[in-house]
Computed example of a mutant assay.
Amino acid sequence: MRGGAQLSVTDLRRSTRHPVNLPIIGEHRARGDIMLQLANVSTTGFMATGIEGLTRGERVTIRLPHIGRIEAFLVWIDGDRAGFQFERIVRLDDFAKLIKALQPNLKARQDRQDH
Rank of each mutant, 00 (worst) to 15 (best):
H66K: 04
I70T: 10
R81Q: 13
L98K: 01
N40W: 05
L38I: 10
A82K: 08
A101L: 00
T49F: 10
I51D: 03
I62L: 09
P65F: 06
R63S: 15
F73E: 11
A96W: 03
Q85S: 13
N40T: 06
D78W: 08
R56L: 15
G32P: 04
G32E: 09
F46E: 01
D94H: 14
R59W: 09
I62T: 06
T61A: 14
F95E: 02
E52H: 14
F95K: 03
R91V: 07
N40M: 07
V75R: 12
F73R: 08
F84C: 04
I51G: 05
R56G: 15
L74P: 01
A82I: 08
F73V: 03
F73Y: 15
A48I: 05
R56D: 14
R112C: 07
D33K: 13
L54W: 03
Q37P: 05
I34D: 10
G32L: 11
Q110M: 10
R69E: 15
I99P: 00
E71C: 12
D78P: 02
V60K: 05
S42E: 03
D94M: 09
T61I: 12
E52S: 15
I70K: 08
F86H: 04
M47K: 13
L92Y: 05
E87I: 02
G79F: 02
L36E: 01
Q37A: 14
L64K: 00
A108Y: 04
I34N: 09
R81S: 11
G57L: 04
Q113Y: 12
G32Y: 09
N105A: 10
R81E: 13
L102S: 06
L74T: 05
T43C: 12
G50L: 05
A96K: 12
G45L: 04
R31T: 09
T61S: 14
R56A: 15
W76D: 11
M35P: 14
H66I: 00
E58W: 04
D94G: 10
G32V: 10
K107F: 11
F95N: 02
F73K: 06
L74R: 05
I77W: 04
R88E: 11
